[in-house]
Amino acid sequence: MTPRQSPVQLARAVVVSAVALALLAYASAVPWSYHSGHAARLRLSWSARPERIETCRTLSEAELAARPAHMRQRVECEGHAATYLLRVSVDSQLVNESVVHGAGLRNDRPMYLLRDVDVAPGTRRIRVSFTRREQTDDDAAAFAPAAASDADTGMYAGRAQREATERARRAGAAVPAQLVIDTTLTFADRGVHVITFDPERRSLQVSRGALERSTSPPTVPHDY
């Protein structure tokens, strides 16, 4: 009932299988173009907290006394997270201008920024600015230690100072009102430079990875 295979059929089966497998092997790693040979990229990538734009008010003794004990805060602030204007120019030409705001429904979470800007390889003057859009009159109230009062005695001793320190800490954790980097970068063919916000130096920096590579050019095989 089961047909037997002749040597010719067997040979045919072997040849067809070999062709099918060669096709499978080819299909499993087809060279697929990704980027053009004459391209380079400027990448902006950072995360930072937006500032809070607040209007602060020092409460009077009477107002403070009217609050429940655990809500007695000498300086009361109301506000929202700031938004920022990102401007990127390459060789003095503006190539990207966009508004960036914090994540989350109320935009008060950290901002995550990731932008890829195509540039032509070569030496380019790059200017990136990241500027708070909201004008604030004077943040003095937020930073100034509130005057000590009777309410700051006993278990509340030094509270006004603590509040001021906390507000200052929050302000310090936020991105500065203006960040600018103006630099000249050399882009190799298919090279990428990354500009990032360095929270320690509180400034925009060019990531070292690409710079290191520019001293020893990438040894990437031509096809992959």
Binding site: A25, A29, V30, H35, R190, G209, Y224
Partner: peptide, 25 residues
Amino acid sequence: LWPAALGSAADAFTLPLSTPLDLVA
């Protein structure tokens, strides 16, 4: 006979011209 191609190591600072692509999976 036909070991599968491996691209060069991923590198965030270089845009590859092409990559191997598995057209099946």
